[in-house]
């Protein structure tokens, strides 16, 4: 373990503080082992979840701007590089696109600074946890830290929409044929199930208006994953997790995990408080199978 942890400002987002606590806890625990510490920024509000697509909707940018201001202050006070790490795809998308919108049109930033009576200088680099693992830690280094044998596990990576699109603004990976989660799973040593539904939409907020449609779309994704032999599916978005998980209860028995939960298992951490039990489809069997292999390896 490195002697001094890198201090990384972190924006949690509402869902990660309540419905997806396991995602946040596992991510923070893993970060500590990998060598960086995620610190919540002091004061934060909901990011607004969906980035306003119409150009004239400046009001939708108010919430993310507030967060960027807070992050910038957090970093200035500590004299560190202005950056912000996120876990939720929605938050990542909204914050990063807001920052991009300001870079593209400084007039917008001026208007919002005046409206909010705050000052965002446009310096914050918004990063996703996965992006940080890939670009700063490196998947090669990550694979060296793996302590659990996951080679028996067939895992389907599910990206969803907002982690990747629009590519021009997020630049995380290719929106049609992404590899970042594939590489991540590879580094953990599990078998990656490359399935066609990995970038299809799960139905997202349509759950509010038309839950049947969400069920249909999620079923399609889960069917494809199962058809390609996946035992479990990992995602980076709490809404995808919730939609897929609720559909899976009706469909089958494939647990839907957050990628950090799997990472925590791989790194051999205590996973008791990672809230596996709040998932609709109980991932107990998956968790148990991994621990067994770990014990075997230790015995040898």
């Amino acid at each position: 373990m490195p002697e001094k942890m890198t201090h990384i400002p972190y924006y949690p987002g509402c869902t990660l503080k309540s419905k997806a606590l396991g995602y946040e806890r596992s991510a923070k625990d893993c970060a500590r082992v990998i060598g960086f510490e995620m610190h919540d920024i002091e004061k934060w509000n909901c990011c607004g979840a969906s980035f306003p697509l119409t150009k004239d909707n400046l009001m939708g940018l108010a919430a993310p701007t507030n967060i960027l201001v807070e992050a910038e202050q957090h970093c200035t006070e500590r004299k560190i590089d202005a950056q912000l790490i996120t876990l939720c795809s929605f938050c990542y998308n909204t914050l990063k696109r807001t920052d991009f919108a300001f870079k593209e049109d400084p007039g917008k930033l001026k208007t919002l600074n005046e409206f909010l009576d705050r000052k965002y200088h446009g310096n914050v680099k918004v990063t996703h946890y996965l992006e940080y693992l890939r670009d700063v830690i490196g998947f090669d280094n990550l694979s060296k830290m793996v302590k659990t044998d996951l080679s028996h596990l067939r895992v389907a990576p599910y990206y969803g929409c907002l982690l990747l699109k629009p590519e021009k603004e997020l630049g995380l990976d290719d929106p049609e044929e992404p590899v970042i989660l594939h590489d991540f799973l590879d580094a953990l040593g599990c078998q990656v199930v490359d399935f066609p539904g990995q970038v299809d939409c799960c139905g997202a907020y349509l759950i509010m208006r038309n839950p049947d449609k969400v069920l249909e779309l999620s079923h399609k994704i889960l069917d494809e994953a199962a058809e390609y032999g996946a035992q479990t599916l990992v995602t980076a978005c709490p809404l995808c997790q919730s939609n897929l998980d609720q559909s899976e209860v009706v469909r089958g028995e494939m647990p839907i995990l957050y990628f950090t939960q799997l990472l925590a298992i791989a790194l051999g951490l205590e996973t008791e408080h990672h809230q596996f039990d709040t998932h609709c489809v109980d991932p107990k069997s998956i968790v148990a199978s991994c621990q067994k292999f770990k014990e075997c390896a230790n015995a040898k």
Binding site: C46, A63, N66, F115, L116
Partner: peptide
Amino acid sequence: IFKCVACG
């Protein structure tokens, strides 16, 4: 409350 846009 979920309609809040954080305008302040």
